[in-house]
Computed example of a mutant assay.
Amino acid sequence: MTKDKSKVFLFIDDEPVPIAELDTPIVFDLDTKKIADGEHVLTIVSQSPSGKEGIKKIQFTVANGPSIKVEGLKNKDLVDGTLSLMINAYDKGNQKSFLINGSETPQTIPFWIWIIIILFIGWAVYYEITSYNIQ
């Protein structure tokens, strides 16, 4: 260990053993595939050559598993009766090639789109009727 460089210790969540002990400056690749999906905290403890310490905490969420999309039920909805749910789960692939099959979740058309379509068709019919009366 050189005495003219600061050291950093990287901790995930409340683990007592650091995942890395590094001399600065350094570029570190954090492999999130080795961490469970969910919310985590990366704690970086620095130690200067003079012995002083600093700390920085960074919250992050790991989502390496398949992405899950649900239509028909939202978080904390108040529901009654039978619900029709559309559920899709798809993987991100290996990040070196794009995975098309199953990567898009089909969605229903929002009601405001239907209103715009109906208004447009109504206007078109009205325009056609009034344009024939003028001639």
Results as ranks from 00 to 15, higher is better:
Leu83Ile: 01
Ala89Glu: 12
Thr43Trp: 00
Val62Asn: 03
Asn75Ser: 15
Ser84His: 13
Asp80Pro: 00
Ile100Cys: 09
Asn88Trp: 07
Ile121Thr: 07
Lys33Ser: 15
Pro49Lys: 08
Phe98Asp: 09
Asn88Tyr: 05
Leu78Thr: 15
Asp37His: 08
Leu30Asp: 09
Thr24Gly: 08
Ile87Trp: 04
Lys56Cys: 02
Pro110Val: 12
Ile116Thr: 10
Asp29Cys: 07
Lys56Ala: 10
Gly102Val: 07
Leu73Met: 11
Phe111Asp: 06
Asp37Pro: 05
Asn88Gly: 10
Thr82Phe: 04
Lys57Phe: 02
Glu53Pro: 00
Thr108Lys: 05
Thr105Trp: 01
Thr61Val: 14
Lys52Gln: 15
Asp80Lys: 14
Asn88Arg: 06
Ser67Asn: 03
Glu71Thr: 14
Ile117Gln: 01
Lys74Tyr: 10
Gly54Glu: 15
Thr108Leu: 07
Ala89Pro: 02
Ile87Glu: 02
Ile117Lys: 09
Ala63Lys: 08
Thr24Asp: 05
Gly102Thr: 12
Gln59Cys: 06
Glu71Cys: 04
Thr24Pro: 12
Trp123Val: 13
Leu99Thr: 11
Trp123Tyr: 07
Gln59Trp: 01
Glu71Trp: 10
Leu85Pro: 05
Ile35Tyr: 02
Leu42Ile: 06
Pro25Asp: 06
Glu104Ser: 14
Thr43Arg: 05
Ile115Pro: 02
Phe111Thr: 10
Leu73Pro: 01
Thr82Ala: 08
Ser103Gln: 03
Glu53Tyr: 04
Gly81Ile: 14
Ile129Ser: 02
Pro110Asp: 07
Thr105Arg: 00
Pro66Asn: 09
Ile116Met: 09
Asp37Arg: 01
Leu73Val: 15
Glu39Met: 06
Asp91Arg: 10
Lys96Leu: 04
Ser67Met: 05
Gly38Cys: 08
Ile115Thr: 11
Lys92Gln: 11
Gly93Cys: 11
Lys96Gly: 12
Leu83Ser: 01
Tyr127Thr: 12
Trp123Leu: 13
Phe120Ser: 11
Ala89Lys: 06
Ala36Lys: 07
Leu73Gln: 01
Lys69Pro: 01
Thr82Leu: 07
Val79Phe: 10
Thr82Ser: 05
